[in-house]
Amino acid sequence: MKSISIIGAGPAGIEAASILAQQGIAVTLFEKSSSAMKNVADKTFLFPDFAAASDIVEAMNKKLLNSNITLHCDTEIVALEREGKTSWKLTDAKGMSYYSDLVLIATGYTPFDAHRKEELGYGIYNGVVTSLDMEKMIRYDKIVNSLGEKPRRVVFLQCVGSRDEKSGNHYCSKICCVTAVKQAIELKRCLPDTEAYVFYMDLRMWGQHFEELYRQAQQEYGIRFVRGRISEASGTFDGRVQIKAEDTLMGLPLRMTTDLLVLMVGMEASEGTRCLGKACGIGGEYGFVQSKDPHLNDTATDQEGIFVCGTCKRPMSINDSINDARSAAVTILQAIQ
């Protein structure tokens, strides 16, 4: 019987583990943080149907309750090297080694660090927050400006750290467009009197129901969409944020003062993804890992015995990650038979 290790207990890692476990195969699952589903747990509601993220976390955690799955939390795999002809050696940050015949990498993404876009003032002005901060505000129903008051205006800015040459990320993070629409609607549901603006380059409403959500946002909630990027943010004496932007449809530069500026941060390859991708020679663009073939063999890699799934390959939504994990599980089943 071949031993299988899965690195990363997010939606992808857990889904693959549970499918394999249901087939009676023993799986070892490694997670660097103290609990599984860390990134999803940061969210409150999920697009496009406003499903509670906690429900998803609970459902996924239930899948871990299988005797064939061994979960090692607080175990960060930092090295992956070939051991003999068919086996792989995994070493964690504490120096412990694990041996496995097949390895599934599901190390996922990390949100773009908004401090790197200093001109947008994150970490400098209290009124500038990221989309993750906004999720927390929505969860605790405490959407407030820097002075703790109800905001009169909230501005969402798309493509922070995605489609941005300067920060080195040319790719689209895929999920931020619809997330901004979702968050703006949630904002309007909580605070109907607050004005909401979304500054965008293009709105990519690629998924089922996304376009309808976008239409609702405009027609039912009165959210205003402005095509243009924000060039810089600065603080005002009363603790608000002044932004400079260009409305590219009107062809005019504009300045606007807002209580909250929400930066829709994109997805970047996580530290684990970068490190393991490099370690076993499957590193691709922008630190993500590369599969063998994007059409026909998207879960195997050039290294025999190494499989990949989820957002360690490219930005993906949660449901796409789960589907990808299932196909990875099938590929692994074929490989061990």
């Binding site: 200093e118 001109e119 003032g121 400098i124 002005y125 060039s231 810089e232 943010a233 600065s234 603080g235």
Partner: peptide, 9 residues
């Protein structure tokens, strides 16, 4: 420096 507001602050 307007693009690096930490400096002016």
């Amino acid at each position: 420096s307007h693009l690096t507001p930490d400096i002016t602050r």
